[in-house]
Write a protein that binds this DNA or RNA. Structure first.
Lengths: 338, 338
DNA sequence: GCTCTACGCTGTACCGGTTAAGGGCGGTCG
DNA sequence: CGACCGCCCTTAACCGGTACAGCGTAGAGC
């Protein structure tokens, strides 16, 4: 290992024959530097391969130019075959790249994670913190906000914090409504649902959408609960079939669970959509490829990420560009399964 | 926004009635501090909610306690439905979590990325840099290593750098050999391959494994090239069928491409495995669920991540625990498709 | 009772930047 | 021709920690 010394401002200044302050101003693009000097400094920077030390810079500016995205799940869960988080990350990184901010991803599924994240942010590692899809009434966003750290959430917070936190969410209830009405419109009358986890706003709202629409139609509910994984969808579908062998449709609160449900229906010898119609929620790529292709509610996940990032950039620049609460539209995509 | 001042060492010192230096030693767990003082300091830390400023600390220690993982792809590609990167990330974060290091993920698919990553590392943001699965003969790992920055790669570097960089890879050639010999053992004689991108070591080595084994057996090669995506697998399979309608087996260099190939075979009315046997490479979760379940070469991706992280931790602690080059074993998993 | 040693704490010089205040110098105006 | 002004640069004071040198104090030894 060569461990060549990294050049400092001082070294550049000596080489260019000016003071540290002047070099600093050139490096930061100040306009009040004579052209001759500026060129000399830039040349010295080039020759020495100077790169500013971020720690030193952060120490005085109190900014790090990087932003954290908290994924409140274990790494196992974040990077399973569920493509929700990847899409959020994609959207976020598009915007942050453009703003030349560094994205710091933190998986926070463990119990010790809250402390860890809080300490990380408090230590000044990042200029702001974004949360993707939280469980329960997480106190962390509120806590960070109270400390003066910019915070943005994806998913409406479950309990309105005393200090409201900006968020972006999608129209779960509206989307589910469209899905269930589509099922009603094709003559289905025994419509069950596989709901998502009831400690997440996405799980709760989608169940609410189902219940509201069924109540309007004067039909009975059949609810099983999963946790958004394929496996849980499979189990829930089996249970629904056991409870009501005559059901003719099911709205499933996530595409992954819907794929599990398709499997269970196939195992049980039910034809989709002839015997049982299936609608999912997400519109992942693979849902176009399933057998049969899945009718589903599309939510703009990448857009959620982008919006969240833009909100964050507005906060750290102290000129908010996005409104505090954004709700993006959802859309029913009709394919073969319903 | 409240923007409460974050307490500093100085504040804690005043409150506890000791000097900054003593507080620093308590915070860092030095043993040479009297119990009474230590308790007083800890209490003050507690009361003020003190958290050390990482920038200040890094400035003097020259360490950041965080480590970068470079994914030499765009975010789109990293988080598509290919589960290679997620698995690497999972392995890496297991080890780094345990070592209390922060993982910084960087997607570097764009052209400007090299500069960006180099500058990021040079700016002292991270203590070390890990590369996941590179394209071509990337000069960046060597360049960083020459600057004295600890570097580890996943995937054997394509050109031996003047400064060798530690790496972890899997036994591509051996695994493919087992796969192709399995096909031979079941009587297949017209065995084609869908190779991976030939600017990546994984693509090259797997093709080599195929060619070596076929040459041993005295059989002719049929090669199409894809880029590890499902779509490219589908196209490549179509082409292979057009070139040789009588082929009876195909070794596909990645599971995603294999799924594309299964689709193409189904479209072409070929039965798997009766007409054409298919073997993949990866052993992703979904390959158990495909129709038919995919015979494939399992590579321990999570282990690769873990090993890479352990190598890195050895480097930054200057007590290398892992050997410089690690090659992990691969294993043939026989299911229904071959 | 005094010295010596060891321990434990304090004082302070850094780390590498940024930025406000200050000063040199050439040009302009009265 | 001198005072003044404004432009640009330098000087130096921070930012919040770490770590080293040094000093006070208490206990041991004689």
């Amino acid at each position: 290992m060569v461990t060549r010394e990294r050049p400092t401002l001082e070294a550049v200044a000596r080489r260019a024959g000016v003071s540290r302050a002047t070099v600093s101003r050139v490096v930061n693009g100040s306009t009040t530097v004579a052209v001759g000097i500026r060129d000399a400094v830039n040349q010295a920077v080039e020759e020495l391969g100077y790169v500013p030390n971020q720690a030193a810079r952060s120490l005085v500016t109190q900014r790090t130019e990087s932003i954290a995205l908290i994924l409140p799940e274990t790494a196992n869960r974040v990077f399973s075959d569920d493509l929700f988080f990847p899409a959020v990350i994609r959207g976020v990184s598009m915007e942050l790249d453009a703003a030349d901010k560094q994205l710091v991803l933190m998986m926070a599924g463990s119990a010790a994670s809250h402390d860890r994240v809080e300490r990380y942010a408090m230590a000044g590692h990042v200029d702001g913190v974004m949360f993707a899809s939280m469980h329960g009434a997480d106190p962390l966003p509120g806590a960070l906000a109270r400390l003066g750290i910019p915070v943005v959430c994806s998913g409406r917070p479950m309990t309105p914090a005393e200090l409201p936190v900006p968020y972006v969410d999608v129209d779960h209830v509206g989307g589910v409504g469209k899905a269930v009405r589509h099922l009603l419109g094709t003559g289905r009358r025994r419509i069950a649902t596989i709901a998502g986890p009831q400690d997440m706003i996405a799980g709760i709202d989608r169940l609410t959408g189902y219940q509201d629409t069924l109540r309007e139609a004067g039909l009975a509910e059949h609810v099983a609960v999963g946790d958004f994984t394929r496996e849980s969808g499979l189990r829930a579908m089996r249970q629904l079939l056991a409870d009501d062998p005559a059901l003719d449709a099911v709205f499933v609160a996530s595409d992954m669970m819907a794929h599990g449900a398709l499997q269970a229906l196939k195992d049980a010898g039910r034809r989709v959509p002839e015997d049982v119609a299936v609608v999912g929620f997400d519109d992942f790529e693979i849902s176009r490829l399933s057998d049969p292709p899945l009718t589903t509610v599309r939510q703009p996940i990448v857009d959620m990420g982008r919006t969240m990032a833009r909100q964050m950039l507005g906060l750290v620049n102290e000129r908010p560009s996005e409104p505090d609460a954004v709700v993006l539209p959802t859309e029913l995509v009709v394919r073969a399964s319903a």
